[in-house]
Each structure stands twice: as structure tokens, then as C-alpha cells.
Design a protein around this nucleic acid. Sequence first.
RNA 1: GCACCCGUAGCUCAGCUGGAUAGAGUAUCUGACUUCGAAUCAGAGGGUCGCAAGUUCGAAUCUUGCCGGGUGUACCA
Length: 672
Amino acid sequence: MTIFELQETLRQKVSETASVEFGIDLGQIVSEVPRKIELGDAAFPAAFELAKLIKQQTGEKKNPREIAETFKAELEKFDFVDHIEVAGPGYLNVFYDRSKFLVENADAQPLPKLILSESADAPKICVEHTSVNPNKAAHIGHVRNSVIGDTFQRILRATGKRVEVQNYIDNTGVQVADVVVGFIYLENMNLDEIKAIDAKLRSEGRTFDYYCWDLYAKVGVAYQTDEDLKAKRAEVLHLIEEGDNDTALLANYVATRNVECITNTMERLSIRYDLLPRESEILHLQFWNKAFEQMKERGVIHLAAEGKNAGCWVMAFDSHSGTDEHESDKILVRSNGTVTYTGKDIAYQMWKLGILGMDFFYKPFFKYGDGKDVWITTANESEHVTAGPVFGHGETVYNVIDTRQSYPQEVVRKGVAAVYPEKGEAASVHLSYEMVALSPAAAEELGFDVGEEDRKKPFIEMSGRKGLGVKADDLITRLETNALAEVESRHGELPIEQKRQVAHQLAVGALRYFLLKFTRTTIIVFDFKEALSFEGETGAFCQYSAVRANSIFRKLDERNESINNFRSKLSDSAKVSEVLTGKSGDDIWSLITLSSRLEETVQQAALQNEPAILAKFTFNLAKAFNLFYHHHKILIEENAVKQAVLVVTADLARNALTAALRTMGIEVPERM
RNA sequence: GCACCCGUAGCUCAGCUGGAUAGAGUAUCUGACUUCGAAUCAGAGGGUCGCAAGUUCGAAUCUUGCCGGGUGUACCA
């Protein structure tokens, strides 16, 4: 049995004992993992609760410690329980039979179990993340989105869910229009000239998205003084939305190239997608009309006859947030007949859930190195690849979007649920997270003029419009450079290819862990020193533990000593018990139990939509391994049984560690 | 105005549906490489858990009020 199953068995017994011996239904049984190993492996505060209920029901005052004794007698009947201590005012501290547990779990392999658990017939979950406006390079805030989304997607897969990853491309929005305005009116370029610039950048090893980053900022500055230019924005936007004209073609080139650049950036971090749905198709295939029909049929939308919304199609919307509750109608179609962003978003969300009643056409966009296709939407039926996968139709849809979009996301969730109550609000989940901001010092470090007012603030919001932000590729490259220097100093003899590979893995580990260790509600105030660190609570720390564990097994391998051979030495349970006793035994035992908690940790992270839970667990596991590593010298251990216990424990730990890291998208290097 | 988020060690943060002496990392100071790798480990100091009430055997955690900081709240996109 896994440690989670043991706990469940005990919970049931506690519940049963409460009703049989005391005639009381305790409901949900609370159990905890004590912080200190002296307090056992599982603890139940049930006696307190029971004493309270007995007093309420009969007036009789019972001592919790006495009640606990009754539980103790019942729970000790399980053979996996070594003994139970009634502690403090009435805690029930359960100690498992250590040798029995180790022998039974000696070959536990969380790695294949977690990675291959996705089943083909499970209901599909759609996870949308990244969704960077394709008009500039991605910055660190976008990376937080992608890392949270990608890790969450991996967590879901590890719990057996079937997942589709979507990266929404807003290729017809104002942000793209702004850059197009820049190209046409500031740079005076046509499509051919843009292509020429793009080719030139490529030949110089520079990227198109960086060029757009600067141009976008330039346009932002120009708008402040040039009203004519600002007027061009609406004009350009209109042309892009309409499609089938030179401006739209130009915009399409710009957006597509940025999508390619951003996808390359994310690929550096092991972040991939199944599908890129584009706004242009939502427009051209007229998703809104279909949603509009359904909303009218189902009576959730009506034409406002009077008041300030007169002439608009509105949806009744109950909200405690937003403007006055009296004005809770949400406008979906403006009085001029055009649809609002919210309207389009509701239609799109309906598509994701498979309830819109129409679909995109799809074609392959490009292939990753290993041959995996990324698909993109198209409005052109003749381009459609019929043999392709079925997209959308999510049982549940997770939208990874920052917390500033909470209100519009709430509107979409409630709107869709109003049209389709059989799906309900629970099918749409806004996986929100706080922004990554810059400390005033970090902004200055980037060469930015920080004004008087901003300097007093605790942090400054990043802004693509102002060109203020830490670009993802810059940061990754810096991490790789720093890591390479470290690898060079330790393993200068390795071939350069391998050193680069390790440096890359360390950079990915550092960045992903850095963004995952904070809970979603925490604003990350970006700090270069902290983000670039390989020491302390970092990805490198976790990777280092696994690397050291692996090197033990490499040495064992060189000696032709197999793990199975060590496992077979665990048959003498008395001797195994002895090894697992006392202070030295505690170290080993706590590593065993912690390693065995990976699966329940992944479950918990999925249940609470919080990848940080997995990150914290991984760090604690790495720390526990380091402690174990320093206290026990495995290769030179003379006691054969003890050596076997140590080897098996180290194996459990490195498997759990590797699986945990993999679930966060972090690889374990060969050497570091 | 209303809604949501945050306030825990000098700094950056964990702390699950209430549970035992509130924990990490970092910084500071002191130790540990002839060892399976020191990107590591051990130790020390560091706390009115924003404030105040309430709920109860028990509150960092739940409720209410206040204080401080942040974000959002358009027929924009």
C-alpha cells in the first residue's frame, strides 16, 4: 500500500470506531502529517472533536486522552502499524512499521507512473496559456503565465487526465495594429521591405520579435504627440479585422512571425502547444453569430429598448464586482451593431467547451524537432486537413490569464453558463495569477528612466507599450551563460556540446523553479540577483540532489552491483528494522516517507490549481536527500543490510525527485 | 463607491479544509572538502503573524470592523 492508502485506511477505522464505540458520526476525519518525526507518521486530533461532541450530546465530560486510548487499541490491530502514542492533550500519533513499508515499496517507480498515466479515453481538459499578443517579444511576465500553464498541464497529465494545450493568438487586435502602424507610417515600409528587414535580422542573428518590441515602444511614444498617427490606428485595425487587403496581409506576416519567435522562446523552456487558435478565424467564421443565435433562442440576451444601453443587445449579469449592481447588464452588441470583445470571448469559450455548434478548420503550423505537430486554425475550408486531431470539446477548460482579467473572465464564465446551464460555471476555470513586476532598481538596471513618483512605489508594472520589461530570451541567455561558466569551472574536461546542454538544463531549471515557487496570488517583484541564483531554494539545488544520487548509482553500476541485488538483501526484517531505528534511522525513514508522498502532492496541486505546492515539495525532498547524503556513506557502508536499505532509499528518492522535476518541466543533467 | 488580492524574521516568501514549541530561502556571524561532488551541510542570532474585537478546548488560518499597499470596475480592444 502507498502511504496515502495507509492514511485512508486509518481514517476509515477512526470513523468506524467513533460510531461503533461512541455512537458518533465524526464526518470528515482530519489527519495530519506531524512536523517532527518524533511525533509519528500520521496524527489524528479526532479525540478532541469527539470529546466536544459527547459533551454537546450527553453533557458528559470526557477526557480526550481516555478517548484516544480506545482508538489506539483499535488502530494498533493493523499490521502496518508498529505502535501508537497518545500524546499531549490527546493526539493520536501513529508510527508505521518501517521495515515492512520499505520492503513493500522497495521498487516503487513514480516516474513511469506519472509520465505515462494519461489515458486516451479520459475526458479531455483544455488548458489555454501563453496567449501573448503577437506584436513583440515575450517578457518575464508572459513566461510566468506559460510556466504556470505548462506545469499545470503536466500535473493534470500526471493525474491521468487527457489534456489539450492551446495558445490563443490575438492576431487582429489593437496591439498588432499598433506595430503595423509603426511599420507603415513610422518606418514607411511595405510588406516586401518588412520581409527584407526580417531576413537581414536573421542573417545578423537577431530576431524579428525584438525589432517589433522596440518599434511598438516607438509607436507608443509617437501616439502621445501625434494625433494623426493615433487616428491611423483605428483605420488599420479596421482593415486588419476586415481581412483580404494589403494591410491585413502585412499584419498577418507580422503576427505570424512574432508567433514563431515566441513559440521558439517557449520551446527553449520545454513549453509546447497542440493548437494555436486565432482571432482572425473567430471573426471570419463568424463564431459570434452562432453564439448570438443560441443566446436569443435560450432567452439570455435582449435588446435594450431604453436607458443608457438603448439599442444594445445586453445580457443580464449578476455580479458583486464591477460597476453598480443596478447597471449589471453586460453589453455584447453595441448600438452600432458591432460585437464587443466580451461577446467574442463568450463565443470562443463556447467553442472550447464544444457547445458552440460549429468549428474551425485546421492545418499544421510547424513541427517540433521530434516530429510533433503544432496545429493552427484557418478559415479556409480548402486548407483543412480532415485527418487531423479533433480539437476543443473540453470537459473542463482552464484559462491561464493574469488576475487583472478576473472580471471579464467572470463575465465569460457566467455568460456561458447562462446560455448552457447543463455545462455550468464549473466547466470554465480562470487559473489566475498575479503579475511579475519590476523593482524600481531593476527598472533602472534595464536602463530605464524611473521618474520621481515611480521610484517611491514598491514595484513598477511591466509594459510592452513602454518597452519596459525583462525579455524572456535575454534572461534565458543570461542564465545559460552564467551556468556555462559554472559548469566550465567544475567540469572543464567535458565536450563543449555536453557543457552547453547542461548549462541549458540548469537555466531552464532556474527560471521555471523561480516562477513556480511563488504561489499564484503573490506578485513577483523581479530581482535579477534572485532570479539568476543557483543556490538556496532554486531549481539547481533540486537538480544537484538528483545528480548526486545518480552518481552513486553510476558508481554502483561500474562495480556491477544491481539495485535488485540490494533489494533482495532486505528479507531479514529484524535487521532492516534495526537500521531504521534511532536517530540515524529517522533520517532514512523520513526520506522514504517523503519520497512516497509525491503522488498525493501532485493530486493536491491539481485539486488546488496550485503548482507551487509541487515546487515546495520538490525542494523539501531535495533537502531531505542532502541530509541523508551527508549522514550516510553508501558506497563504503560495511553493514550489508544497512547498505541495502541506503541504496533502496536513495533509489526511491531519486526516482521521486526526477519525476517531480519532470512534472515541472525540469530535466536532471548528467553532471553539473 | 463597489469587487478581488496582499500584509508572517532585516529582505523574499511557505504555512492545506482551525491543531502540538509559527517554518524555509537569503543576508549577517561561526564551523565542515584526503570522503558517493562544498551549486552542499551543520550551528547561532533574528517574530506584538498589520491593529482590534468575536467564534472555541484550541486561531497566522474562520467571522466582523479598522489601518496600510496593489489590481480591477467602458458600447476601449
